[in-house]
Amino acid sequence: MDFIDYYKTLGLTNKASDREIKAAYKKLARKYHPDLNPTDKDAKANFQKINEANSVLSDPKKRKKYDKYGKDWEHGEEFEKAKRSQSTHQRAHSASQSGGDFSDFFESMFGGNATGGRQVQFRGEDFRASLQLSLLDAYKTHKQILTVNGKAIRISIPAGIDNGQTIKIKNHGGSGMNGGPNGDLYITFSIANHPDFRRLGNDLYTTKELDLYKAILGGELIIDTLAGKVKLKVKPETQNGQKVKLRGKGFPVYKKEGKFGDLFVTYNIKIPTRLTDKQKELFTELSKT
């Protein structure tokens, strides 16, 4: 366990006045508050550091003890629990930050109760998890059991969830402190590629081989979609690379039951090989027409 320089955390020296500590804390809190930095993964950890520094340096008793023992905190006298209680500002609030996590250094020096006698309610920590699904999994609404921090959670994953999309499961984060609400669980989905279908939004794309004769003369073709097999009419004189759209045969639209994107089929015309002499003759004939 390493010593933490709380003054340095707040960008101060040990000569700082209470006013300077308060001002430095507020300034850094505004910079690192997790609610103000939704895309910064490090903001929460930074915010906890400055929160911890402030909770020590803004409390005269804790600051005195911290200043007295400094780096030799491990040999410090036992801090009397009774002396910890404070009669300062008693505003109880469910702060949206998760302020409950303090360092081992802090716990060792001041005990587990970060706030002394203040009954400040803290919302529990938000948990973040990622979950990989196959394209077929994402195609249908299904239930899945996840284990988060040793707890099994049954979640329902709506059809049409997108790659990179995050969903919030309320109250399944860390437990709140002093009666504060639990945090939330955020799950980010990663949808694996499928060998036959590529997805863009709600549309699916696939490639289908088409023999030369059917491409020229037209006909019927059975193709696989995620909803099952579909019979497709091939128009005569279909070109290589030509695309057809199958309306409503794409991916389900997220949280819009019964709505689907489209399926785009690109034809890849296969030129026959190993032609017989007779076939070559016929092609030669054709080429002269």
Partner: peptide, 16 residues
Amino acid sequence: LPQLEKYIDFHYSLDI
């Protein structure tokens, strides 16, 4: 409520 608590926190804890 979560949104309101956020605003309360911004105003009373962060002096915004």
